[in-house]
Amino acid sequence: MKIIKENGLLYTKNLGRRVWSHKWLYVLLAPAILYYVIFKYWPMYGVVIAFKDYNVFKGINGSEWAGLEVFSRIFKNANFWSAVRNTLVLNLTSLCVTFPITIIVSLMLNEVLSIKFKKISQSLLYLPHFISWVVVAGIATNLFSQRNGTINNLIVNSGGQAIPFLSSNGWWIFMYVVLNLWKEVGWGTIIYLAALTNVDETMYEAAYLDGATKFQRLIYVTLPAIKSVIVTMLILQVSKMMTIGLDAPLLLGNDKVMGVSEVISTYVYRLGIQNAKYSDSTAIGLFQSVINILILFLADKFAKLIGEEGII
């Protein structure tokens, strides 16, 4: 048995003995490994459906190869590019609104001196995150429906005209962003508030002694201290530009706003589940994942160019 020295510690060259010496750590790690193997890596085999003329009865192995024919068919479909455009528009709009407001809300909560009021405020902000989009869509319909919606009833009774909040393209995008903001802004503050607790208090004291106002301390002390966290969160958000949840667009959308509410997830749902075009839906999912990975690498590269560490 050969003994090797690594990082100041002695190990046996035999890998089996080294694993056995840390067996309980591997036992603790086993459930996580099994989870990723069974639910993350093994299903990746299904990606080959994107390159086959998939037949449910023949299965994956029995279906004939189609090569890139499926992708060619998808890219020639105008509905696909419309769904891509809508996905990017909704994600970019939500990002431009939700991301800065989340940071602002975190900074405001951090300045609250009353612990009791701070906890109550945080609880009220976190609560919408746990409400299902089914419930949110129902509330939105009751409030903003053009016919018999609570808000429109108030507007009409005041002498105004009903506003098509959920049946006009522009208003629908506005409502989607507002509802998404209301639902997720509180949950997004958790990481920023955790980062703010690590800001060195002596820096605030030094800035105060130098005559800096509260706003100046916020700009020149607080924000630079959490800059790396902000950049990391931005990279993670940008890397999901081609991904959007199925529930919100599907539940809030209707025939009148299909031009803006039909996103990739709803398009894949209708294509794969309703029309049973499994090869096409799998190819779209693969395309979506590849684009997200490319965006992630580009965002990480940009972060490193401006002096941040990035996440890769």
Rank of each mutant, 00 (worst) to 15 (best):
M1I: 00
N7E: 11
N7F: 12
W20R: 15
W24Q: 13
L29W: 03
I33Y: 08
I33N: 10
Y36G: 11
W42N: 00
G46Y: 07
A50N: 08
D53S: 11
N55A: 06
F57I: 08
K58L: 12
K58I: 00
G59K: 00
G62Y: 05
G62Q: 06
S63K: 08
E64A: 15
V70K: 03
R73I: 02
F75L: 15
F75Y: 13
F80I: 06
W81S: 06
S82E: 11
V84Y: 01
T87S: 13
N91D: 04
L92R: 05
T93N: 02
T93L: 12
V97P: 09
T98L: 15
F99N: 11
F99I: 05
F99Q: 10
I104K: 09
N110P: 09
N110G: 11
N110V: 11
L113Y: 14
K116I: 10
I120Y: 04
I120K: 03
Q122T: 04
F130P: 12
V136D: 09
A137K: 03
A137R: 01
A137D: 02
G138M: 07
G138W: 03
A140N: 03
T141W: 10
S145P: 04
Q146T: 14
R147M: 12
V156G: 12
G159P: 08
G160I: 10
Q161F: 07
A162L: 08
P164G: 10
F165R: 08
W171P: 02
F174N: 07
Y176G: 09
V178Q: 05
V178F: 14
L181S: 11
E184M: 07
Y192T: 09
A194Q: 12
A194F: 13
A194C: 14
L196P: 09
T197C: 06
A207I: 01
D210L: 01
D210V: 01
T213K: 04
L218S: 10
Y220A: 00
I226P: 04
I226M: 06
K227G: 02
S228W: 06
V231T: 14
V231Y: 06
Q237D: 15
M242K: 04
T243R: 12
I244N: 05
G245K: 07
L246M: 03
L250N: 12
D255M: 13
G259A: 13
Y267D: 00
G272L: 02
A276E: 02
K277W: 06
Y278T: 07
S279Q: 12
D280L: 08
A283W: 09
I284N: 02
L286S: 08
Q288M: 15
I295Y: 05
I295P: 07
L298N: 02
K301F: 14
A303W: 03
K304C: 13
I306Y: 03
I312M: 15
